[in-house]
Nucleic acid binder design. Structure first.
Lengths: 148, 148
DNA sequence: CTTTTTGCAAACAATTTGCAAAAAA
DNA sequence: TTTTTTGCAAATTGTTTGCAAAAAG
């Protein structure tokens, strides 16, 4: 991401946040600039380190708060499931998971959609392909029935 | 899973473990029976509660140790990535992740393999489909280059 | 008997929270 | 000047670890 394009995205995000009624503090602007500038998939700590270079008095919890706020607004996402505990799975057949965004329940399903061989071919430049994990998230029937 | 089929699986697993040189303590047998019996995707705590009914003196850390041992042997798996920290992602385009099993580096990729509409159709019984997250795990080129 | 495994209690690491002071609107 | 946000420090939560006693082979 080149500097000019980055600034364009920062300004766009700032506008979106203001429209959402979010106060633009220097800390928040610094955090969002760093996430947008990050090539990879930074954790809170590394965003924190990057932000501190420009706003030395920032605290780690503000970085967390800002990152989750951006996530809640759908402006960034997180890798992996957001379940706080490890979940084990004794199903040894190849399968995938449907996870409810509200109650967290996870159900197994199988699909013929994924051609492992074709995927592995496309990803050959990255490395070997050992396993595939498809997670579909949505509102489960039971949760959809309740208000919300 | 009916009782008879369950016992068959328990015995099969016990045999596998012995072949792997693992000592069959009552705690371990109870843990593996509970994981096999579990319909869903239990966390360590709920396996712990179930095991305690039969082996009251069992401790939570033994449950963890046993579950991870089964995982290491490839006999069960875990849901979600096993990264200890949340990773944020500012890439707003629909994309998927290739994650290295050794170094944990995550790279984005896109694919035309997944037909969201068709998937949503197949999963209609579970609930709505909001997002898809495909995670491919393997050994990245850089890690494959090193010994191991 | 020798080696591994257990239960306990304490340690850990990532993340979250309560709150008074500081900053935004 | 009213409301939100911050930084700090302490709390919380899920998981792991060191160790002496107990159990497995």
């Amino acid at each position: 991401v080149e500097r000019e394009e980055l600034e364009r995205r920062v300004e766009a995000l700032k506008a979106t946040l203001q429209r959402a009624g979010v106060r633009l503090t220097p800390q928040r602007v610094a955090v969002l600039r760093e996430v947008l500038a990050s090539e990879g998939h930074p954790d809170a700590e590394s965003v924190f380190r990057a932000v501190k270079k420009h706003v030395p008095e920032v605290s780690l919890d503000t970085v967390y708060r800002t990152l989750w706020m951006l996530t809640d607004l759908g402006l960034i996402t997180t890798l992996g499931s957001r379940q706080p505990r490890v979940q084990f799975d004794a199903n040894t057949r190849p399968h995938h998971h449907y996870v409810c965004l509200r109650c967290g329940v996870a159900r197994d399903f199988e699909t013929g959609e994924l051609d492992v061989a074709r995927l592995a071919e496309g990803l050959a430049g990255f490395g070997s392909v050992e396993t595939l994990h498809l997670e579909v998230r949505g509102l489960c029937a039971s949760c959809a029935g309740q208000a919300g």
